[in-house]
């Protein structure tokens, strides 16, 4: 069955009502909508200080029809662990615990609590929605920001360091399920969430969520940019089940049939990369190629 026809099978129930406070063109909501459809109403969402806090609205109104609990910045995975423990202690293990933190709350401040929860094997689904900077506070550099990007704390000299390879860090925790997903491929998000909800233990998703506000591109291009990240293998789609890596969707077809695009156009279309030199773009391409070759080898290609 193709992904197109699977759309007919999505639950009609919407958990995010039309109209929220996120920036126009935000990539997070596209994927979030399908995650909640896959998990259903018996889900508690743990949210740190982040863009998602804004989506969930200002008291006493919220556009999200799912139980949400805000927690301190660094403690999303701890909060998720607490819900998981309480549900077990009180006989409500039919509830899902969904932790939703940004790259700041995951790559940086939240890494300790997440590593702890992952090592303990807490029964939670943790999503890092990665927009590659501290977007909620105004696009400051994070360890998820790629080399060559201007941010509001690298305003003149673009960031020099490569983006942290966070999936490698999570992979070192022996998780039962991990996946790379993109807002530009919501059907892939839905499918992977249906799989993840059947698995016990810590399940980790790395979501690529393009951000027009911080990446400086027109709001209409979020899906286009997201697709370019996958098509040029900057952000491949894959899953790792009990250590076995398999490419999925577009990334699988690139692995099989080729068609990998260069990073040039992706770089050129975004204002945050406007100061990148030809040499830096070449360096970026080399880094992407090396990472992709590694994935291909591990996936058995």
């Amino acid at each position: 069955m193709s992904e197109q026809s699977a759309i007919l099978d999505y639950p009609e129930q919407e958990y995010i009502l039309p109209g929220n406070r996120l920036c126009a063109g935000c990539g997070v909501t596209i994927a979030y909508r399908f995650m909640l459809k896959a998990l259903g109403k018996k889900t508690v969402i743990c949210v740190p200080a982040s863009c998602l806090t804004i989506l969930h609205g200002i008291y006493p109104k919220t556009p999200v029809m799912a139980t949400t609990v805000n927690n301190t910045f660094a403690s999303t995975a701890a909060a998720a662990s607490g819900f998981s423990a309480a549900f077990k202690a009180t006989g409500r293990e039919d509830w899902h615990v969904l932790a939703m933190a940004g790259d700041g709350g995951t790559f940086d401040m939240g890494i300790q609590a997440l590593s702890g929860a992952a090592e303990r094997g807490e029964n939670i689904i943790y999503v890092c929605y990665d927009n590659e900077a501290y977007m909620n506070t105004g696009s400051q550099r994070s360890s998820a920001t790629p080399a060559g990007a201007l941010t509001s704390t690298t305003p003149i000299r673009p960031k020099e360091q490569f983006k942290k390879d966070f999936m490698k860090i999570m992979d070192a925790h022996w998780l039962p399920y991990m996946a790379g997903i993109s807002s530009a491929y919501p059907a892939d998000v839905y499918k992977k969430f249906l799989k993840a909800r059947q698995i016990k233990g810590t399940r980790f998703f790395h979501l690529s969520a393009p951000c027009p506000t911080g990446w400086f591109y027109p709001t209409k291009d979020t899906v286009k940019i997201g697709r370019m990240m996958v098509e040029s293998c900057i952000f491949p789609l894959y899953e790792i089940e009990e250590g076995r890596l398999s490419l999925t969707g577009k990334s699988l077809s690139i692995a099989r049939s080729g068609g990998k695009k260069p990073v040039d156009e992706y770089v050129a279309i975004q204002g945050r990369f406007k100061k990148m030199t030809a040499e830096q773009v070449a360096q970026f391409q080399k880094h992407v190629d090396e990472q992709w070759e590694g994935l291909l080898a591990r996936a058995g290609f």
Binding site: C46, A78, A79, S81, G82, F83, A86, T90, Q112, A113
Partner: peptide, 19 residues
């Protein structure tokens, strides 16, 4: 837990959940 910060984080969530 791996820290006191998380210890209280777990307690907060567990208490909200009714434990």
């Amino acid at each position: 837990v791996e820290s006191e910060h998380s210890a209280m984080g777990v307690c907060i969530a567990a208490s909200i959940a009714g434990a």
